[in-house]
Nucleic acid binder design. Structure first.
Lengths: 229, 229
DNA sequence: AATTTATGATAGTATAAGTATCAATTTTAT
DNA sequence: ATAAAATTGATACTTATACTATCATAAATT
């Protein structure tokens, strides 16, 4: 059985829906690789246009500016991840097992490489790397309140709320389920970043895989949930 | 007894030592308030110069660019904080008590408002707010490896290592002391940011003080250290 | 008093960010 | 199949940012 899961994006994120044209899908796809390759600050719409063989002005017709494109990509990731959480924890009996599955999703442990159909498929590994480096810049701005009013962070909140629910399922008396959920998400990301770039801020062996990070998160999560408050 | 503690800054951070002239100290002081008021992305050296009644070119004589000034401010904070950790945990008998003191430092619980002498004193509350919003941008860049080679993040690593040592003092068998230390620092910051700006990502009452954040961190830390690995 | 050093004032370049226009092309509706 | 509508390409602007350069003046050193 073949199927694709479509993510419905917040309409404030774009001027013209990039999912509805080849050019739009290409902006998203190439945007991920450009941001991934040279980083958000070095990236410009001109460079993106050149790489795509199109014009700056064409990209501006889809996205108001670079920041909106970033938020688009990052929220796409949150929504994709929330779907994975729902899908992969479905029919698991124990909340413990669900949480374990969620942690493995957060570090993209053993994920398949792409999402979506053929040429327009999204390179999830690259997107994950982008999220690790740039996702926090989506909200660490002066206009966070305004963006929040436009519901731009709803996918992040939804993901967080969903994880918090599983936490409460496992330990109904724990009073900081949402903070713990957001901490797990953020910690998964910057510990991965530190492991790669500033390894002395971690205890992980850079030459090995992310198993140690997973161990760290697992221990953090389950010890916290076991101890009464 | 009057005394001031001087922080020796990495010389790669500036072109001319801002501590050694009135103009330089003013750049640092006003830089903190400007970044604090309008945020890093909106801030420019032109705006900073206008606000100071000086010229753009004069600021460029001290700092290569905006990012270096950011790193300067942020690392100043890390060094100041490490000193506070050393000072305030000195002569405390139990590592548990030391860790508790460290957590309170991380959220700036009951800190006095300024550091340094008179007119050149640094507004710590504003700097703390700046660190919460902007500190991660100091390392979340493409040139992190190069900056790291220039030791720009040494103060952060030193602080982290010091906290990790207290963690090991309290629980010698815990294998992730450094990751836990960096997690505590980061979590203290973005949970404070979320509390202020995206409160549904937390369980904290925005109308109250940071006590709940402290409770969250305390529980996270001590439950993790109690449980065997 | 002489000399080095720091700052102010002004000017200039390169790139980024964003807008506007219009013709050419593609898509959609009839 | 044809007309109408929407999309894209191509070009050209405007404004702002991020610097660099120069030189006169002021301040601090020797």
């Amino acid at each position: 059985m073949e199927y694709t899961v479509n993510v419905r994006m917040n309409e404030h994120l774009f001027l013209r829906d990039p999912e509805r044209s080849d050019l739009g899908r290409k902006i998203v796809r190439e945007g991920i690789t450009l941001f991934g390759e040279i980083g958000l600050e070095e990236a410009t719409f001109r460079k993106l246009a050149d790489r795509m063989g199109t014009k700056e002005a064409s990209i501006y017709r889809y996205f108001e500016n670079k920041h909106r494109l970033l938020v688009y990509l990052v929220t796409w990731y949150w929504q994709w991840l929330e779907y994975q959480v729902v899908f992969q924890t479905n029919n698991l009996q124990s909340p413990h097992e669900k949480l374990d599955r969620i942690l493995r999703l957060l570090i993209m442990d053993g994920m398949n490489a792409t999402a979506g159909n053929g040429a327009d498929s999204i390179d999830l590994k690259t997107l994950h790397g982008l999220v690790i480096r740039e996702a926090s810049k989506a909200y660490l701005t002066r206009h966070v309140t305004e963006d929040n009013r436009q519901q731009l962070f709803k996918p992040y909140k939804d993901l967080c709320a969903r994880i918090a629910n599983v936490i409460r399922e496992h330990q109904p008396t724990y009073p900081f389920a949402r903070s713990l959920a957001s901490t797990l998400i953020e910690t998964a990301h910057y510990q991965a970043f530190f492991r790669q770039n500033l390894p002395s801020l971690t205890d992980f062996d850079t030459t090995k895989d992310e198993t140690q990070l997973l161990e760290f998160l697992r221990h953090l999560l389950f010890s916290t949930l076991e101890k009464p408050t």
